[in-house]
Amino acid sequence: MEPITLDENICYYVLIPIFIVCIMVSFLRQKILVVLKSDTKVDLKEVKNSQLLTRAKVLRVNADFLPEKAFRSRKAFFNKKDTGAFWNPPDTPNPLQAMATQDPTQVMGMLKSQMAFVILNGGLAYWVHFLFSGFLVAKAPFPLTYKFKFMLQRGVDLSSLDVTYVSSLSWYFFILFASGGIVSLLLNLRGAPQHEQEAQDIQAMDMINPMMGGMAGPTAMPGMPGSQPDLKKVYQQERDNLDIVSHDFALATVEQRLVQKWTKQKQH
């Protein structure tokens, strides 16, 4: 099939505008979210749990740098039968119950952020579709398999068209997912975020952004306060992880190692 030549004007009037508009909208959305954001109530118990789990993880990873006695006493703190921290998980409320008794402000907060996503992204997708439907805006410089056709040629239903051509709608989606890095660069243009909260927000948004995709809607809520992973299972898992760690004191032969290192140094 002959390569299709795309008019230069497409580049100037479609490719670049979609790119700029999409970046700008993402940028705007971040700022709007900061304004609309209501303070999420952090559950202290969650903080305590997550820190406990972190400590267990650190213990597992750095066990070898502690003397055996120290490691064993800390392992016992977590794993000792019946009294250890991992044998007594705090009660996790029934997830359905949790949904019902959720703090209304929390729900509002989630709703607001979802609305921002849906409205902005949906509106933008509609705009792209309305103005630029049926355009081919770019050609991928590398060959691709047939399966990518669906992804790259949204809105253009030509089965015989080469897979490497990208339609305007797909280009929009591509920018949407990929804009995270550029947007954070722009956000940080005026210097590092002034408040700790902002930095956390940006990170949170970066996580949520690709997962949401704008179309997923309020169904997926990764890591939001209110979702309670089953602590019993988590604790069980951690308990097993810690059980299998064997202590191999990293400093058992450190004196010999040091002597060898110094002897080698002297020889050079």
Binding site: F65, L251, A252, V254, E255, R257, L258, K261
Partner: peptide
């Protein structure tokens, strides 16, 4: 104690 001193020297 000696081991940790050696560790610091490493």
């Amino acid at each position: 104690s000696r081991k940790y001193y050696c560790f610091a020297l490493e």
